[in-house]
């Protein structure tokens, strides 16, 4: 009985990490209604940036966030201003093309600069685990991931609910031209929103780098996780994204435990299909 608690608990904690991975997409896809296919690459770019800062300055991976956050905010702001804003208000397709192109460019640039070798952000946290009354083990790094997830989503939720910028981002996602009539400089607001989404990518990139190994092409794999999380949780709901992360994490680890390691990915996406069938708008999404 208790052995089944271990994958459940670890699944919940892993879900916290998945939620962070999904939160950037929840912002761009769920609220701004733009599908940024390069989100995974921004994540992995952050992992590499952190690696560079670690080897240059000898910092702890978590401390490199102080440098990776502002770098990614600027990158996100510039990408939106010079690429995505050019196709703003012209429907989904041009946006998909541009972001897909960007994703290929980033992936290959990283391959060129950082080589295809496996990397990780080494930290002593990764090998420690908590022994809970001798019943089961919890990797400390999962706890760090989960805490990071809750804090980030809480901050973002507060920002979206309570600030003029948050209202402007949500209003622009609903109706771009009416939002202009309110006095919103939509191009600038979208640039800031993309900057924030890139900061969440930085957070997930560093956490993923500390938790798993990564390669230049790892972004795609996490983009799929992000889509799963947002779709399960529901478009436009940040706490839904958190819930989506937990469900995907638990489904994967439980599936891996009881059906065999080969079923880990499959069981996660089976849950996704079930949610889509029963509640197409996602668990906390509105129609």
């Amino acid at each position: 009985m208790l052995t089944s608690l271990e994958p459940l608990l670890n699944g919940i904690l892993l879900g916290g990490l998945y939620a962070v991975i999904g939160i950037g997409l929840a912002l761009t896809f769920g609220i701004m209604r733009q599908v940024n296919l390069a989100h995974g690459e921004l994540m992995i770019l952050s992992s590499y940036l952190s690696l560079v800062f670690i080897s240059l300055l000898g910092l702890h991976p978590l401390l490199t966030l102080c440098l990776v956050f502002p770098s990614l905010f600027i990158i996100g702001y510039l990408i939106q201003t010079y690429l995505f804003n050019r196709v703003l208000g012209r429907g989904m397709e041009p946006y998909l093309m541009v972001s897909f192109g960007l994703s290929i460019i980033l992936q290959n640039a990283m391959l060129k600069v950082f080589t295809p070798d496996a990397r990780s952000l080494k930290t002593s946290l990764a090998i420690q685990s908590l022994d809970v009354y001798g019943l089961f083990h919890v990797p400390v790094i999962y706890l760090v991931d989960f805490t990071g997830g809750i804090v980030l989503i809480g901050l973002l939720h507060f920002f979206m609910k309570k600030s003029y910028l948050g209202w402007a981002i949500r209003a622009s996602g609903d109706d771009l031209s009416t939002s202009k009539l309110m006095g919103v400089n939509t191009a600038r607001v979208y640039a800031i929103a993309m900057g924030i989404a890139a900061v969440t990518a930085a957070m997930s990139g560093v956490l993923v780098g500390m938790t798993f190994t990564f390669y230049p092409h790892s972004g795609t794999q996490y983009l799929i996780v992000a889509f799963g999380v947002v779709i399960i949780g529901g478009m436009g709901s940040l706490w839904g994204t958190f819930l989506g992360g937990l469900i995907l994490g638990v489904a994967q680890l439980m599936g891996g435990q009881f059906l065999g390691p080969g079923f880990q990915l499959l069981s996660g996406y089976l849950i996704l299909l079930i949610v889509l069938t029963i509640r197409p708008q996602g668990l906390l999404g509105r129609k």
């Binding site: 609220i31 003029y164 209202w167 402007a168 949500r170 209003a171 996602g173 609903d174 109706d175 009416t178 939002s179 009539l181 309110m182 006095g183 919103v184 436009g236 509105r286």
Partner: peptide, 25 residues
């Protein structure tokens, strides 16, 4: 200021938030 045809209320904002975004300037 324009009151647009078809009202164009923001669908993910509450009544209060819809009003507050009006004071964005």
């Amino acid at each position: 200021s324009l009151v647009p045809e078809g009202r164009r209320i923001f669908s993910s904002l509450t009544v209060l938030e819809n009003l507050l975004i009006g004071s964005y300037t």
